[in-house]
Amino acid sequence: MRYTTLLQLTLPLLLIILSSLPSNAHKVRVFAWEESGIIHTEVKFSGGRPAKNAKISVTSAQDKNELLTGLTDSNGMFSFPIPDTAKKNHYNLVIAVNSGDGHKNSWLLNAADYLQVTKNTHQQQPSPSSPTSLQAAQLAPPEQQKSTAVVVDGEQLSQIIEAALDRKLGPIKRSLAEQQEHKPSLQDILGAIGYILGLAGIAAYFKSQKNR
């Protein structure tokens, strides 16, 4: 009898709480992605609010050298060009964030994820004429097109494609990185409540054994 009233009290409370769930905040999360030679880092609390002035340190996973440190801006963003030593030594970068109030997290950016593309963009930078030559190729009459097409062909064309893909894939990389975060779902929560009730059952069993 006592607990049925209590149940009547607690259940609506739980339901109200469950219905207001989508925003929550417990830990800080960080994700990083590379976009044409610059590594972008975004730091958020798990409710989606940006973590301002959080301390970021970038270290190499191989020899634990600290390459650079910085603070996030008001949007929780921190961007830095890929350090030369990291490029040279093919470091996997560990991007660690500490928000100062006991929250800490890190993100591993593998060398393979940022090095290949930068190599291409670096080669591409000295030749900004390549897209225009492609345009010229399209505009040119067919006889000339053949000859210019040979110039654009191969190496350069693949560079253009990769640069374009890189630009287009940037936001996708970002949202993929973002989605690695496991958000509490209703199933998790209900499952946890089940665990709690199960533990209560075990406790009740042992206590009742003692009573006998």
């Binding site: 209590l6 607690t10 709480i17 769930l21 109030d101 709690i196 209560a200 406790a203 206590k207 009742s208």
Partner: peptide, 28 residues
């Protein structure tokens, strides 16, 4: 023995309640 269920109910409440984010103040 009598308190076991009460404790577990409050454990559940605590578990769920501490998932709500209060959007106030500078921190989370």
């Amino acid at each position: 023995y009598d308190k076991v269920m009460g404790v577990s109910l409050l454990t559940s409440t605590f578990f769920v309640a501490s998932l709500i984010h209060v959007p106030l103040g500078p921190g989370n």
